[in-house]
Structure formats: C-alpha cells, structure tokens
Amino acid sequence: MSDLFSIFEYQFFQNALAAAILTSVLAAMVGTYIVSRKIVFIGGGITHASFGGIGLAFYMGINPLVGAAIFGILTAVGIEWISEKGKIREDSAIAILWSLGMAMGIIFVFMTPGYTPNLMSFLFGDILSVGALELYLLLAFCLLMIIVFAVFFRPILYTAFDPEFARTKGIPVAGFRYLMSVIMALAIVISIRTIGIILVLSIFTIPQITAMTFTRNFARIMPLAAIWGITGSVAGLLAAYLLDIPPGAAIIFFLTIQFLVIKMIMIIKTHLQRQQ
C-alpha cells in the first residue's frame, strides 16, 4: 500500500493525475454536447482526421498538436458545413474525412525521414509524459470552456436541441454550431496526448452516458460526467501503475467497468422498486 502512495511523490505522476482530472472536466463539458446532439460519429471523424495533421506536422518538423488542431478544426467545420448544406450525406462525408485523414497521416509519417518516436504516444496516448506546458494548455482551455458554457449555456442548449425553433427566436444558430465545432475539435486534439487518438472518444462519451443514468438534465450531466470521468481516470491511472499496463487503455477500461456496474445497480434498483 505504501508503494501505491509513494508514486504520488513523483512529478511525472502528479502531472499525469492533473492531466487526467483536467481532461475529464474538459471532456465532461464538450462530451455532454456531443452525446446530447448524438454526434459521437462526428467526434470520431474529427479524431481520426486529425492524424493527417499529426503526420504532416512530423513531416514538416513542427509541433504535432498544431497540425492535429488545424486538421481537426477543418474537419469539424467541414462536416458542419456539409450537414448545413445537405449536398452530401453527412455520414458519408464523415467516413471520407475520417479515412482521408488517417491515409494522409500514414503517408506523411512514411515520408518523414528517420524514426518518429512520438507517433505511438499520439495514437495510444502517453499521460505519464505530459509536461508542464501541456498541463497549462489543458488548464487554460478548461477554464475557457467553463466560461464559454457558463456565458452561452442557453444558446448552446437551444441550438443543440431544436435548431429550427432557435432560429425563429433570432438565435444565430449557424454561428453557435460552428463555434461548437471548433471547440469540439480543439478539445479532442488537446486530449489526444492523455488518451490517444484511438481511445480519446471514450472519455467524451462514457462518463456522460454514466451520468445520464442519474439525470436527463443537460446542466446536471456536465458536473456528474466530470465526477465519473475523474473517478474512472484516476482509478485507471493507479491500476496502470500497479499492473504495469498502458494508462490510456486502463482509463478507458475503468470508465467502462464503472458504467457497467452503475447501470447494473440502477437496473436492479428499478426492478426491486417495481416488485414492492
């Protein structure tokens, strides 16, 4: 047990813990919007398309997160535009951008001279190597999102729920939809370092679905999803240390287990209440 506590003394673990908590809070806000609007597939498209940006950034020798952010934003805004104009089926457009991004990433990584040591950390996440600068970036974006959701809560909710009706009330629906597309892309890209491209979507969906077993109120889902995100990711992080397994995968595993246990408890509770 003392072995478990001793890990908290290390700077890298403190950073990882802070990254897990901040990513959970960030994903709780943005993920509630994603899950409520039923656009998880769009999130998948953004995530995978951003790999194209990572590949290009490796090839050009710039920060991979910058490349991922550019590709992520272009994909998110592109999907929103296609969905608004309706000239191509939205799901088909997502599939095209999803696979195109991955293909471009593979080509650029292949063309990059020498070995690309960080590639795996972007694919599967590397929470244990998160540095101070990345933490500050996460913290700043988290605070910005708290302000954005607090100030624009109502138009975000109304445009997500019934965009046509919101337009009849003069709300600039297209403006908010594009704003949220950019926010989604940036939140996903910033979280890639913690969880990785392959698994990042889970932290934007599983804690929200867990929270929705308790409440169907948009405003209450966000803090609850943050709590379930933090408990799942901290448990995953500790398990990764104890069992010497990859932290990103361990976090997703614990988020899922947590969801299944809670769901089962709620089903049993409902069943018992019906019997009484």
Binding site: R154, F161, A166, G170, I171, F218
Partner: peptide
C-alpha cells in the same frame, strides 16, 4: 422533437422566450 434530448420541461418553455441580445440571452 428528440424526446431523448436531456432538456427539462422548464428549460424547453424558456427556449420560447426571445432575448434582446441573441448571443447573450
């Protein structure tokens, strides 16, 4: 109407109110 959307009855009715500033309702 998406009946599964997490919005309460009160918030649904609130959404019918028009605000002077649509960006900061």
């Amino acid at each position: 109407i998406d009946k599964n959307f997490p919005i309460t009855v009160k918030e649904l009715v609130n959404s019918g109110l028009k605000s002077k500033n649509p960006w900061f309702p």
